[in-house]
């Protein structure tokens, strides 16, 4: 079956055509599943999460009209999966595919206290965006695969034709560099 253009899928959503959902599943099913599975660890939970995400897309278009669906859909799936992860964690159930990723991210915690956490988070994100812009594309891809897509080091290594050790080292360096970047921006000590 030929895939449908993003613009057409969005248009179908606007026209409330249910074919939009099958087109989304056809084109982005694997993409969403891989994100959800990386975060949740279980295929069953991931499937539930992805189905919820399709519904969320259906409910948010209209009014939204995203030009490219991958980041839009990916973000919805990621947020849903993270919420499920939190819920499972609170209930102490499930395999936590995300645990290691979160542990690594603890290394780049801004230590500055701020009464206005919203402002702190805004500053944090501005620094992260600048940091990502400064990275060579190969490294940035590795960073984003790990901390956005929550990919395992093993999978990133396989996709890059590198050893797990070299990917771990590269990630470690980038976390260290990010910490330095945040320090320069006055967000950490």
């Amino acid at each position: 079956m030929k895939e449908t253009d993003d613009a057409k899928i969005v248009q179908m959503c606007w026209e409330r055509s249910e074919r939009a959902l099958s087109a989304i599943a056809e084109k982005y099913g694997r993409f969403c599943m891989s994100i959800a599975r990386n975060i949740l660890g279980s295929a069953e939970d991931a499937e539930e999460c992805v189905n919820d995400s399709y519904l969320a897309v259906w409910n948010s278009i209209p009014p939204k009209r995203p030009s490219t669906l991958a980041p839009f859909l990916g973000r919805i799936t990621r947020n849903r999966a993270l919420n499920m992860y939190k819920q499972h964690h609170a209930e102490k159930r499930g395999g936590y595919g995300l645990d290691l990723v979160l542990e690594e991210l603890e290394e780049v915690l801004p230590s500055r206290e701020s009464a206005d956490s919203e402002l702190l988070e805004k500053e944090f994100m501005e620094n992260v965006q600048r940091f990502l812009s400064s990275l060579p594309p190969e490294k940035r891809r590795i960073f984003v695969r790990r901390y956005w897509y929550a990919d395992s080091v093993k999978d990133i290594a396989a996709a890059n034709g590198a050893s797990e050790n070299s990917i771990s080292v590269a990630l470690h360096r980038m976390r260290k560099d990010l910490l330095m970047y945040l320090e320069k921006g006055g967000l950490s000590v």
Binding site: N79, L82, V101, L102, L105, E106, P110, V128, Y147
Partner: peptide, 11 residues
């Protein structure tokens, strides 16, 4: 902010 929140923000 903790690791979870940072992951959320990185979204």
């Amino acid at each position: 902010m903790n690791g979870e929140r940072i992951f959320e923000l990185l979204g």
